[in-house]
Amino acid sequence: MPKDSAGHLIPGRLSPARAVPASIARPEYVGRAEPRPNTGGDRYAPDEVERIRAAGTIAAGAIEAAAAAIRPGVTTDELDRIVHEYVVGHGAYPSTLGYRGYPKSSCTSVNEVICHGIPDDTVLEDGDLINLDVTAYLDGYHGDLNRTFVVGEGAEETRLVVERTEEALRRGMKAVAPGRQVNVIGRAIEAYAKRFDYGVVREYTGHGVGRAFHTGLIIPHYDTEQYDDIIEVGMVFTIEPMLTLGTTEWDVWDDDWTVTTRDRKLTAQFEHTMVVTERGVEILTLPPATSVG
């Protein structure tokens, strides 16, 4: 069990890289040190939105498949296997695999891991939190989402931070309207989080997504004037707040990916990819057979 004497997570052992059939198209960055700069902007035509939705539906279905296996005793690597097989089984490429050298098909962030946890032989225990982050690439477009789950029976503060982080995402989405600046999203999220004395992670943000995995557009989750892009109909981006029970200060493991809260207190995250409409947003990362309410 990869934990130290204080019960905090430490790196585990990674399984070999999973294969993707040669028939499945790869994003341009696979096999390269970094992706090419995005030059396509953040607005999309209706047919492009539908391609993002198709990719997002696969990513959402993969999370549902993995979530069904979450229980004490399951490893994060097993969850990654389920995600990988679902995504490639639907003809898509798992976007994280090979992105800037990332070795797996999903991110599995447990307890104090804010984001980018690498699936390994970590065994889930009753009461843990786990965030599953999956992006699928299909027909030239990415769809990206994540969800946090409680393993078994969690403590009340564990369940509440999960419920409230999902609500923070909803609050952020409700703040979106054409003509507003993107910083209104972070203002809504932070105002809600402060009601419970939760921290809001600042350095890891929402982003433009579609033709590129990360387009360069930044969507803040906290109150700031720094990011003032104007929201327009047809824009596609993610909102993905990360709330903490303690400090928002963080550390990165030697793998250059895994980000943990410095005080090792719990953190939760939820994310959707969405398109801006005249009335607000439409979620593009819903699982199969889920209607938009």
Rank of each mutant, 00 (worst) to 15 (best):
P2F: 15
K3H: 14
G12H: 13
A17C: 11
R18S: 11
S23H: 10
A25Q: 15
R26Q: 08
R26S: 03
R32V: 03
E34K: 15
P37D: 14
N38K: 07
N38C: 13
G40E: 10
G41W: 10
E50M: 14
E50Q: 14
R53G: 08
I58G: 04
A62C: 07
A62P: 11
E64N: 07
A65L: 10
A66F: 11
A67H: 00
A67E: 02
A68N: 11
A69C: 14
G73Y: 09
V74K: 13
V74R: 15
L79V: 00
V83T: 00
V83L: 04
Y86V: 04
V88H: 03
G91A: 02
A92E: 01
T96N: 11
G98N: 08
R100M: 11
G101C: 04
Y102L: 03
P103D: 00
S105C: 02
S106K: 06
T108F: 00
S109T: 04
N111E: 02
I114S: 04
I118H: 05
D126V: 09
I130S: 11
N131R: 08
T135W: 01
A136E: 04
Y141L: 07
H142D: 10
T148R: 03
T148K: 01
V150A: 06
G154I: 00
E157A: 12
T158F: 03
T158D: 02
T158R: 03
L160W: 05
V161R: 09
R164M: 04
E167Q: 14
L169T: 01
L169R: 03
R171V: 04
G172T: 05
V176P: 06
G179S: 00
Q181E: 14
V182C: 04
V182S: 06
N183V: 00
V184K: 08
I185F: 06
A188M: 10
E190G: 00
E190A: 01
A193P: 14
K194D: 02
F196W: 13
D197Y: 12
Y198H: 09
R202G: 09
H207T: 08
H207N: 12
H207I: 09
H207C: 12
G208T: 03
V209W: 06
R211M: 05
D223E: 06
T224L: 08
T224D: 08
Y227N: 09
D228P: 01
M235Q: 15
L243Y: 10
D251A: 02
W253K: 06
D254F: 15
D255T: 01
V259E: 03
T261K: 04
K265F: 10
T267F: 02
T273W: 10
V275W: 13
T277C: 09
E278I: 04
E278K: 15
A289W: 01
A289R: 02
S291M: 09
G293T: 15
G293M: 08
